[in-house]
């Protein structure tokens, strides 16, 4: 299953292997973007078939991650890339892990959407749709950055994580309010809390990929003390997120 190609080609050391790794990453990204897109459609309108499709298609993402792992190990063992090539191989391996996690979180979100079903009408759907759209947009931007190097846009993705946290805080507060007002909605409300937490976590993985791209480009890591805006861990009252 390993996608080792190019041994014995006239390409410079590791270039063919790198091209292969980039191609696998592009395919993995495409699958994950599609999963997240379908999740968005299911949030907007209850669609069990689409949710099921997200769940059953996740194995393709897992398979691609395995192929990237095997191809990365082969490239390191047989080609011993150095400099930027080395950074790119390592960056791709790390990003593949993040993409696999995004796939898993999309799958889990689809499961919860199946559980919530038509009860979604009782929940703050517009806020959840807004959070989803913002996260999906960031994933698309990061996908474009994999193809075209653009350090400024990388920084933009990193800053966008704050906005995702704010949107998550807002949805969290709205869901708390719904559950307080109608205890019959606590069960679906909890499912929705986990679902939106999944979206926020997807945002974190998108940020990780942007950091990997920065490392590939600059050969350096960004400071780890970025301010975090997610306050849901401290919220006991739905109004606290506005303070």
């Amino acid at each position: 299953m390993a996608d080792v190609v190019g041994v014995g080609t006239d390409l410079p050391i590791g270039e063919s292997n790198l091209a292969n790794l980039r191609s696998l990453t592009g395919r993995m990204l495409g699958h994950v973007e599609e999963q997240l897109h379908l999740v968005g459609m299911c949030i907007e309108r209850d669609d069990p078939d689409l949710s099921q499709q997200v769940i059953t298609s996740d194995f393709q993402v897992d398979q691609l991650e395995e192929r990237i792992l095997l191809s990365t190990v082969s490239t390191l063992a047989l080609r011993q890339p150095l400099g930027r090539n080395l950074r790119e191989v390592v960056g791709i391996l790390r990003s593949a892990t993040d993409l696999e996690r995004i796939g898993d979180l999309s799958k889990n979100t689809a499961k919860r959407l199946l559980t919530i079903g038509p009860m979604m009408d009782q929940l703050p759907r517009p806020a959840m749709v807004q959070l989803h759209h913002y996260v999906a947009d960031q994933l698309q931007i990061v996908g474009d950055l994999m193809a075209v190097e653009d350090p400024e846009t990388i920084q933009g993705v990193l800053r966008a994580d704050d906005r995702i946290d704010e949107l998550h805080n807002s949805v969290f507060g709205e869901l708390m309010a719904v559950m307080k007002n109608d205890q019959a909605l606590i069960a679906v409300g909890i499912q929705a809390l986990f679902m939106t937490k999944n979206l926020e976590r997807i945002g974190d993985h998108v940020t990780n990929i942007a950091e990997n791209l920065y490392y590939i480009h600059a050969g350096d890591v960004l400071p780890t003390d970025r301010p975090k805006s997610d306050v849901t861990s401290f919220m006991l009252d739905e109004k606290e997120h506005t303070s």
Partner: peptide, 17 residues
Amino acid sequence: IFTNPVEQKTQDYISGR
């Protein structure tokens, strides 16, 4: 030199160009 060379010529050499 082997992870983040400054000069393009170094990068080209270590990547087998």
